[in-house]
Amino acid sequence: MDALYIILTGTLVAWLCGILGVFIVLRKLSMLGDAISHAVLPGIVIAYLISGDRSSPLLFIGAALFGVAVTVLIELLNKKASMQSDASVGTSFTLFFSVGIVLVSLLASRVDIDADCVLHGEIGLVPFDRINRGGVDFGPRQLWVIGISFLVVGLVLLWAYKGLYLTSFNSEFAASLGVGITSWHYLLMSSVSLATVVSFEAVGAILVVGFLVIPPASAWLWSRRLNEMIILTLIMGFISAVAGYFLAVLLDSSIAATMCVVALIQFIISFLVNPRHGVLKKWIYKPQYSPHKPM
């Protein structure tokens, strides 16, 4: 039963991150996603410290604030202070993350998180932290939190589908229609910070990027349409949760990490064999003559 809870939690994390990751990958914002998931750490720690409760709504507010703050800081450094974009990303999020780590190590006695939790989460502990109301067991708390967040983010994305679709594929056209590109951007970014907070306890602040980016990237290689890509992302997320769990049991290792590793293996396979740009295909059918290249 515990195994089922863990796999279910892993799947929901992969789905929650995956549906957001689809848009992150399409908009070529992968490293920004990485930056945000690192940067929400101080928000989480401060909110922990104030509320003393791991499921307090303050956590979401804190994280969302810091997630948006890092996006704004990157923009400011880039536009106002004319720092080149890769350096502004690298500077901003390492600063936020460092502040978070310093807080974690200074407040280790008062806050119930440690460096390990930041690195890879504790998905194995999910089944033990249960909601108990009047003697009735409602199942693991994390499962509820992540499940509800998945529903909320799913509904938001459903509502925002058209706007995100337009701004992801053809932002000039969207702008000419009067669609506000910036507001969709920030909607997506705050959803990513929300997803990071929710997944933080289960998979940590760094590995969450793997769930955010890798399954959508593999799905992207196979698909021609947005809805295909989303469905494939969900399937791949599910497979990596299941296979990752059993791999972790087999090797006696961190579950979140092995889930990520399985996602990476899926990606490499997709990269090699997918029908459109697969590398293997190019090896097998090596063209004898290519008009574009000199002989």
Partner: peptide, 10 residues
Amino acid sequence: LTGFFAIGIG
């Protein structure tokens, strides 16, 4: 980044 880091954490 995440792929290699996940292997490392594992």
